[in-house]
């Protein structure tokens, strides 16, 4: 019966996001986009291209360069019935939005006794890849894992990106949706219009027995490449893609570590007080007796990223570094 099926459709991460936006906007006229250059320009990373032409200026709103207003206005609209998707061009610019995200959006529902809700998504992209420098390359997800009331996701594949974006838009809480500039052109299997991915659920991207590698966003692909190399050496690595940064799905991580007895966490964010520290601490507290080796973190060193494609590549852990760390961990 499968003889007549077409091969799976392949899309880029960018196209998957656009499909997710398009389908949700088609399905629900309360979904609006607002941000800098999201309309006529089509988005700084071309995610929203074509949406202004399809949905018009009442649904796709080009905003002045006022990041705090963009998120605050999304929040105000959300509080009175809209389901806005705001775009902040670079994660680094989120520093301009901290009050609206941290004090306002994250608190609205709780602080006002459940009377108001904030069904909104803030899309940002982060990470290295373009030599974009100290103010356009930071990975800041850990900051937002520290704020009860926010949900934070960072998908790694086109299907997860689309599925999580659709879930985020339908969710009644503020969701910080973190993309990666190195992922937009990455291809993967396309997801259909009914596909969603639940917020708060990690995904085992590769099964293995000897150690667990936890990663998210672009680093998942580095971890998968490393796992491939490790397999050739006879080391079986399990790769857990967190997908959701907050609230953390520690159940999936702990279940995996319970099987493998070893944990390596790899992230692009700088090491100190990165999300790896939280995962390591939780694992140490709850799985101490089952660990066959100390928990290991691999991260970008505590450095200000230079605007230099060579240097940034050398600073962020690559597959070779993951392989070396995993080898160490398994043989220790």
């Amino acid at each position: 019966m499968s003889a007549t099926l077409a091969p799976p459709r392949t899309v880029t991460y960018r196209e998957a996001l656009r499909e997710g936006l398009f389908e949700e906007m088609e399905a629900d006229d309360r979904v609006i986009l607002l941000g800098e250059d999201v309309g006529r320009y089509g988005g700084a990373y071309a995610v929203s291209r074509g949406l202004l032409e399809r949905f018009g200026e009442h649904r796709v709103i080009d905003m002045p360069m006022s990041e705090a207003l963009i998120v605050g206005a999304a929040l105000g609209a959300a509080a009175v019935g809209a389901r806005p998707v705001a775009e902040i061009m670079y994660m680094d610019f989120v520093t301009l939005v901290m009050d609206q995200l941290v004090n306002q959006a994250a608190k609205l529902h709780y602080m006002f006794g459940g009377q108001l809700t904030a069904p909104m998504v803030v899309r940002v992209q982060q990470g290295i890849g373009r030599g974009a420098g100290s103010q356009h390359s930071q990975s800041l997800e850990a900051w937002f894992a520290h704020v009860p009331g926010l949900k934070v996701v960072a998908p790694s594949t086109p299907a997860d990106a689309k599925g999580l974006l659709k879930s985020a838009i339908r969710d009644d809480d503020p969701v910080l949706f973190i993309e990666h500039k190195g992922l937009y052109a990455r291809k993967g299997e396309a997801a259909g219009p009914t596909h969603t991915v639940p917020i708060g659920l990690a995904d085992v991207k590769r099964s293995g027995e000897d150690l667990t590698i936890v990663a998210w966003s672009n680093m998942v692909h580095t971890a998968l490449a490393a796992a491939e190399e490790l397999a050739r050496e006879g080391v079986s690595a399990e790769v857990v893609d967190l997908r959701t940064i907050a609230p953390l799905d520690m159940a999936t991580v702990l279940a995996s570590v319970g099987r493998t007895g070893r944990l390596l966490i790899v992230h692009e964010a700088v090491r100190t007080a990165g999300l790896g520290a939280e995962i390591a601490a939780e694992t140490a507290e709850r799985h101490h007796g089952q660990l066959r080796a100390p928990v290991r973190r691999l991260a970008t060193p505590d450095v200000v990223l230079p605007a230099n494609t060579t240097l940034e590549r050398e600073l962020v852990p690559d597959a070779d570094a993951v392989v070396a760390a995993a080898r160490d961990l398994v043989r220790s």
Binding site: G72, A73, G76, A79, P84, L116
Partner: peptide, 20 residues
């Protein structure tokens, strides 16, 4: 739509409600 303890923090929220 709520009173706010961050000075000015609700002004964009009001603006967003008006936008909608």
């Amino acid at each position: 739509l709520g009173s706010n303890a961050i000075v000015g923090g609700h002004v964009p929220i009001a603006t967003g409600a008006a936008l909608w």
